[in-house]
Amino acid sequence: MDYRIEVEDLNVYFDELHILKDVSLKIRKNMVTALIGPSGCGKSTFIRTLNRMNDLIDTFKMDGTVLLDREDIYDPKVDVVELRKRVGMVFQKPNPFPKSVFDNVAYGLKVHGESDKDVLNEKVEESLKAAALWDEVKEKLDKSAMGLSGGQQQRLCIARTIAVEPEVILMDEPCSALDPISTTKIEDLIHRLKKDYTIIIVTHNMQQATRVSKHTAFFLHGEIIESGPTDKIFIEPCDKRTEDYITGRFG
């Protein structure tokens, strides 16, 4: 089996706080992996380690290895800018830029040096179509993205991410600020995107994990308690704590 990401013995600290403890996880190509677990268990910190967003925090320290396509992303030779182009991220709260719909999607392309108008037009349309948003916004590409609904904004953020053609898309509770209808649309979108992208989604919603993912990892207090095929985790978990969590006994 081909792995896109291989994490081994990852430890993450913020100051003296030991956030992730000896975490190892292999993530397969072109598949959706769900990370579940109670708040504060380290899921978000984990995915932010994968695109080195934690580097922005002064007190961040880590050891262990994180391989993307067999290359260590924490190697000093790695260009973080290039890495983040390959590993895109969608945040919990939709965060479009206060710019037009078009400029939001074109932004990533422009910062990576694309300036040809025709190419930009084509890529923007392609990305918006891939994010199932094109029909809703094609008439208002020059209008501010801030005027879109929350669900549309989140799909715009997904379009913005896929415009730079990443290999991996990290999603940090992408639906937690959305209504059920918008959530369904995002989930449908994830289903369509998984054939082209490796998706890692953090979610608090158990049903969502079962609906969208093929693999699931259960985090608790900074450790991975159990990981494996989603069906197995949800139907016959090995660990009592996993069972307690998914059946809603805590968390």
């Binding site: 695109n51 967003m53 922005l56 800018v81 290039e82 890495l83 983040r84 182009k85 895109g88 991220m89 945040f91 965060n95 479009p96 830029f97 206060p98 932004y107 990533g108 910062v111 990576h112 953020c157 913005r160 991410t161 730079v164």
Partner: peptide, 10 residues
């Protein structure tokens, strides 16, 4: 906004 931008590789 800046998180979004940095995450795109800016």
């Amino acid at each position: 906004y800046s998180e979004g931008s940095l995450a795109l590789g800016a």
